[in-house]
Amino acid sequence: MIEVRWHGRGGQGTVTSSQLLANAAIYEGKYAIHIPEFGPERRGAPVRSYTRISDEVIEIRYGVINPDIVVVIDPTLLAYKDIILAGLKEDSIIIFNHTDPSNAKPLEGYESYAVDAYHIAMEIIGRPIYNTAMIGALVGVTGIVRLESLEEAVRKRFSGVLADINIKAVRRGAKEVIKVE
């Protein structure tokens, strides 16, 4: 079982990211669960969301405590290390959003990857909606689902042009994510 924890802020599509990943896994015939963590539903407030993916039935129903993968959608949250690094295992990986990935540093020695989701989102969507580029980056790094499955999930979630631009963002996120040394 692979456990993912998503960090973002209200309005950035954090919950949607986790949902799209779970749906992509379900399309592949896997078992998955998306668990949103609802605090006060305010734009800008820190939000967490969890995804589990497995080849077997998932019966546990609590939030992810020891994630294999942490995705930080909002770059300003990197400053809150106690939250981002909470419960990480030695071999957990972190994928974060950074405006200058080639100059980014690994977080506290964890295997880290960065992608400039800000520029991808602004160029393709025209608004700072980072999440689809970040899911693309997650799939690009880990391959936990196929990119086509994720695109199918995006197409079912959004319609018409909105689906097309989000799929573009997914593909660019997958292609442009780099390992941070």
Binding site: I26, I33, H34, P36, R61
Partner: peptide, 12 residues
């Protein structure tokens, strides 16, 4: 069905 835990979680 448990509020949020089932109402808002996506499962297959």
């Amino acid at each position: 069905l448990d509020g949020f835990i089932l109402t808002h979680s996506v499962e297959p």
